[in-house]
Simulated scan of single mutants.
Amino acid sequence: MRTLRFVAMGDSLTEGVGDPVEAGWRGWAALLAEGLAGPGTRVEFHNIAASGAQTEDVLRRQTPAALALRPDVVSVVVGVNDTLRCTFDVHAVAARLDAVYAACGQRGAVLLTACLPDPGAMLGLPGALARPLARRQRAVNAVVHTLSERHGAVHLHAADGEWVADRALWSADRLHPGERGHRLLAARFHALLTAEGLAHGGAPACEPQLPPPTRSARLWWLATAGTGWVARRCTDLLPQLVGLAATELRHHVRGTSARLDLSAAHAVSAALAALSGPGQPDAA
């Protein structure tokens, strides 16, 4: 019997946070793994994603571990945590992702990627705080879009649309999909892979086994664990975010907010143009 190896890299989204099972977290990647193989093939699934991971963690630690497993399919879904750090640099993000994607391609693995919603909008932050984070996430998504095409990845557009607005798809923390959301991600990836002739098993079921979190559960999370989550993820960002919000307000009052968007777009273009060839590693 042939063995198909699927290795999942990334952060808490791929780790499975929001989709609890008895042994811990499951998540979209584990659900997808069940539908990759047809008759005569078994799937060997490895999830090495880690909560809080940034692109540098994926490049320096996860990628060598993933390639050592000789994957046939590898997913790389990461970038949100980069936007929540004061060290955010779209040039570094682009260089790291380019190196990771190239390394996977050089091993002949099918590469899965996705763009993601911005955390400010998901958390419902005030506009002046949310817009800088949204701009950063759009920059990361633009990089992921371009590099996914460049490296021939199977790319899932998951940054917006009805699934983002439907709270029934999200866990109590409003940042990670709930079971229904993880199942939807798995089903959407499966559909893309099936269309490419790369998935030969049944599609993951979309109906959850557990009920979605109630409104009171969401509010309780935000009032308790949510505060801790924000503190852990954003401690070094908060002072900078206050400054970014002040800049946002000044431009809003002057009617020059478009300049901030234009500057971000130029930064993305420059970051991609700086990649002189596939897989150029980040020098940081």
Rank of each mutant, 00 (worst) to 15 (best):
M1E: 05
T3K: 09
R5P: 04
G10P: 03
G16L: 08
G16N: 08
V17Y: 04
V21L: 07
E22H: 05
R26W: 01
A30D: 07
A33N: 02
G35I: 14
G35H: 03
F45G: 02
A49P: 00
A50Q: 13
S51W: 02
G52Q: 12
G52C: 14
Q54H: 05
Q54K: 12
D57L: 09
L59H: 07
R61F: 11
P64Q: 10
A65T: 12
L69I: 11
L69Y: 04
R70N: 11
P71I: 11
P71D: 06
D72G: 13
D72H: 14
V77I: 12
D82Q: 00
V90A: 07
V93Q: 07
A95N: 05
A99C: 12
P119L: 10
P126G: 11
L129I: 13
R131C: 01
R131G: 05
L133Q: 06
A134Q: 12
Q137N: 07
V140N: 12
N141L: 12
S148E: 06
S148T: 11
S148N: 00
R150F: 07
H157W: 09
D160F: 03
V164I: 15
A168G: 14
R174W: 00
P177Q: 09
R180A: 15
L185V: 15
H190D: 11
L192D: 07
H200N: 06
H200V: 07
G202L: 15
L210P: 01
R215S: 14
A217F: 02
A217L: 10
R218N: 10
G226V: 02
W229M: 15
A231L: 15
R233I: 08
R233H: 03
L237G: 08
P239G: 12
L244G: 03
H251K: 11
V253P: 05
G255L: 06
G255Q: 07
T256D: 12
L262S: 13
H266T: 14
A267F: 01
V268C: 07
V268Q: 04
A271H: 03
L275E: 08
A283N: 11
A284W: 03
